[in-house]
Design a protein around this nucleic acid. Structure first.
Length: 819
DNA sequence: CGAGCCCGGGG
DNA sequence: GTGTACGGGCTCG
């Protein structure tokens, strides 16, 4: 029998003759796409019974009638398993259909001979990947059985005996980026009426802009079609014809694909671009996503926001900002609001086409840049890249645990039910220790921090839901330094979670050593760096996972113990630093900021080494760096620790700013402007007096009514029909007014309004910009609720009070502002 | 203070 | 579809 080799891109399952068949989308080494059907996987879940024989007998007969199918049990099997550190006898229950798993488990959990059901809500395809040990994007082989006939764009076969082969994974992927431009008048475009006017593609040796207003152009990449419907047909055709491994765009889950779908519907064009001719599937609700069978759609914005955001300097994740920071390249500057006129008059469209193409190029470059990271996460958790880029960290951790579970015979605990979630959410506990800085400027700062503090504590103290308060170590093992409760962890047996986390940390250390050793191989280094980064993210997420209300392996007792140990170690470090004569100025969870005073850099290095000698297991204190000067902001405490807020000037003259939240788009322009300028003056000119004077000037201008309307207009989007609102916010109040004056205020409309002078709550004194005269705005509101909150924290740090913002000569009027 | 709502990205 | 993001911030009740 012939064997087939292929890279596994993605997978789904189809019901064929009342049986579920796994359907794999692959690409052969020769570059051809294939579909492979594996009938050899049955849906199942686990039952932990009180009386196994009774349960099995009853299960054999069970039938659950659902609207369009009948669920029944096909087979059972008794298996010994580990459930939260305990040996249990479990029944593996096979059902007729994947849908029958939730149907049957839901029914039998009510039986009193059943203790609990498990793993009934893990997606069928994911279970397949775990149980068969397969890894998306890697090379696989399988026995070919026969060719399958069907309405597919590619060849399809049934297979058996699939296995992942060692080594290769798809390295040279065919990536295609696209971007759309739409007609729009004032606000964001409305897919009901505003057409798509341009679509660009960018790939390796491929660039194209398609549009349907003809103009003279020097660019051969611009292609003209007859109208919008032909534009959409051509869009489909290019994707089908090129059938890239990866199709990428920026915020395409949230914008481009939903928009295209709406426009295509208008022309009755099917979005059946999948290699199996299945239409693009849209995830619903709050998390839209567009899945194309056989083509991996990666919305690179989704990946950036989940995995990269933390390490970016920019707070905004706009394509322009992200591209500038990552690629050092920007969008083409155009007047986007002028595009409507350019389109109407067919004047200057070439410039917009260039802009359109550049967006695709930046998206393509970002995708290429992050592909090693996406691949590493894909391999780490064995989830197709489509899903990986759309998963939160808690899901990544959980998925990694689920992948490891079979090796340790571990049965997964269940996700919490609704009331359990409520209970968990209400349960808070102390987080990291924060040593509040005295606000102000400092010189000669040393920053020390514990390398991966929480993960190393978990490993060093064997912390996990399976090792906590074991009967075998009661009274023998030390108790964790928590503020309440008495928790100890097993000393005889390593737990599932500490074992996994220790493995992650040691793998990462090995890789870091290889990177150090092999300095010369640049390409290999990039890959290894992506690998160590994914492991770092993974290790750092375990603690949060244990405390996350939605977790399967939830244990607030473990989380309490971890932060308890963390507080113990950091306080101990602070105490010892002070004993040695350093000045501790700030500390937050895992880091300590010292000023040298009369001591030297070498003294700081010696201090670090003395601390490290006493730390248990793999715990380690590192010296992050020396900073000639810095400004500190008071840190605000939350249940999971403190938020860092400070700005440091490094030895190389770079500014490191942490924790200043950006002002949101539904804030007024004046608030944004003041925040930006104050930060600029303080950080770059180092002149707090000047920042204060500047702010006073703006407040004075607000009081005098001199600030123009366009700087105080607020924008808020209506998300539902005005009649559906139970709580009437300012924007809803204005929308009602607008509605009464005959405006269209359907969901999606951006409501613009100005808060005006008057009595009572805000919504009673909001006006549409048109009915509000210049200077009629409520300066009190704009000072207290817009400008002051945006710069408040910054001035607090510099030792100023809100009172210092009083404008001379106007103190009487201002007093009421700051009550 | 809790509940309700909006924001992000996109044009 | 072996379902239903997320954390932060503002305003109303």
């Amino acid at each position: 029998m012939a064997k087939i080799h292929f890279f596994l891109l993605d997978l789904t399952y189809k019901i064929i003759n009342d049986k579920a068949q796994i359907c794999l989308f692959g690409r052969t080494p020769e570059g051809e796409k294939v579909m492979l059907f594996d009938p050899d996987f049955k849906p199942y879940f686990y039952v932990i019974p009180n009386k196994a024989s009774q349960v099995i007998n009853k299960l054999k007969k069970i039938k659950v009638e659902k609207r369009d199918f009948t669920a029944n049990v096909e087979e059972t099997e008794i298996i010994s398993k580990d459930y939260l550190g305990e040996e249990v006898e479990a029944i593996k229950v096979y059902t007729n259909l994947p849908r029958a798993v939730p149907a049957i488990s839901n029914e039998i959990r009510k039986w009193d001979i059943v203790k609990s059901c498990h793993e009934y809500d893990i997606k069928f395809t994911n279970k397949y990947l775990i149980d068969k040990g397969l890894t998306p994007m890697k090379m696989h082989q399988a026995e070919l059985i026969e060719e399958v006939q069907g309405q597919y764009k590619v060849k399809a076969y049934s297979i058996s005996g699939i296995e992942q082969t060692e080594g290769d994974y798809l390295e040279h992927m065919d990536i295609l980026a696209f971007d759309i431009e739409t007609y729009f008048t004032k606000n964001m475009p409305n897919p009901e009426k505003d057409p798509i006017i341009m679509i660009s593609f960018y790939g390796s040796k491929y660039r194209k802009v398609i549009t349907y207003k003809k103009f003279r152009t020097k660019h051969d990449y611009i292609e003209f079609v007859d109208d919008e419907s032909h534009l959409l047909e051509r869009f489909k055709e290019i994707i089908e014809k090129r059938s890239p491994d990866i199709l990428t765009a920026y915020n395409s889950d949230g914008f481009d694909f939903p928009y295209i779908r709406q426009r295509a519907k208008k022309y009755k064009i099917d979005m059946d671009m999948g290699v199996d001719n299945v239409k693009v599937k849209f995830g619903r609700g709050n998390m839209p996503s567009a899945r194309i069978n056989g083509i991996i759609h990666i919305d690179i914005y989704q990946f950036v926001r989940r995995y990269i955001r933390e390490q970016l300097k920019t707070d905004s994740l706009k394509l322009d900002n992200v591209a500038q920071e990552i690629l050092g390249e920007r969008k083409i500057e155009v007047d986007i609001k002028g595009m409507k006129k350019a389109w109407d008059d067919n004047k200057g469209l070439e410039n917009y086409a260039e802009y359109n193409l550049q967006d695709s190029k930046l998206t393509y470059d970002l995708c290429v840049r992050f592909m090693p990271n996406i691949m590493e996460f894909t391999k780490l958790v064995s989830i197709p890249p489509f899903n990986v880029v759309r998963m939160g960290f808690s899901q990544v951790v959980e998925r990694y645990l689920l992948k490891q579970a079979p090796k340790y015979r571990v049965i997964a605990p269940n996700k919490p039910a609704h009331d359990e979630i409520k209970k968990r959410r209400a349960d808070t506990y102390p987080g990291g220790f924060v040593y509040q800085p005295t606000p102000g400027m400092y010189k000669a700062i040393v920053v020390l921090d514990f390398r991966s503090l929480y993960p190393t504590i978990i490993s060093a103290h064997n912390i996990g839901p399976g090792t906590i308060n074991c009967s075998c170590c009661q009274g023998e093992s030390e108790t964790a330094p928590t503020e309440k409760g008495k928790f100890w962890f097993c000393r005889k047996k390593r737990g599932f979670i500490p074992t996994i986390i220790n493995d992650v940390i040691s793998r990462r250390m090995r890789i870091k050593e290889i990177i150090k050793r092999e300095k010369n191989d640049k390409g290999g280094k990039m890959l290894l760096d992506a690998r160590q980064y994914s492991l770092k993210i993974m290790a750092n997420s375990f603690y949060g996972y244990l405390a996350f209300f939605g977790s399967r392996w939830y244990s607030i007792e473990c989380a309490r113990s971890i932060t308890g140990y963390a507080r113990y170690y950091i306080k101990d470090t602070i105490k010892k630093a002070e004993e040695e004569g350093f000045n501790v100025i700030y500390s937050d969870t895992d880091s300590v900021f010292l000023t040298l005073g009369s001591k030297t850099k070498d003294d700081a290095i010696g201090f670090r080494d003395r601390i490290n000698k006493e730390l248990p297991g793999i715990m380690e204190l590192e010296l992050e760096g020396f900073f000639p000067s810095g400004i500190f902001v008071s840190a605000k405490m939350g249940p999971y620790g403190a938020k860092k807020k400070y700005a440091l000037l490094s030895e190389s003259g770079k500014m490191k700013i942490t924790g200043f939240e950006t002002v949101r788009s539904n804030w007024s322009e004046i608030a944004k402007e003041v925040q930006e300028e104050v930060l600029r003056i303080i950080l770059k000119e180092n002149d707090k007096e000047k920042a204060l004077e500047y702010t006073k000037t703006v407040i004075q201008r607000l009081i005098d009514g001199k600030v123009s309307k366009d700087k105080i207009v607020m924008h808020t989007q209506l998300t539902k029909d005005i009649s559906e609102y139970t709580s009437i916010g300012p924007h809803v109040a204005v929308a009602k007014k607008m509605h009464d004056s005959g405006f269209d205020v359907s969901p999606g409309t951006i409501i613009t309004y100005i808060v005006c002078k008057g009595k009572g709550i805000i919504r009673d004194r909001v006006k549409m910009p048109e009915e509000c005269g210049e200077g009629e705005y409520d300066s009190e509101y704009y000072i207290n609720n817009q400008v002051i909150p945006s710069i408040n924290k910054i001035f607090e740090v510099l030792g100023y009070d809100k009172k210092d913002l009083y404008v001379e000569g106007d103190q009487k009027d201002l007093k009421s502002f700051f009550s």
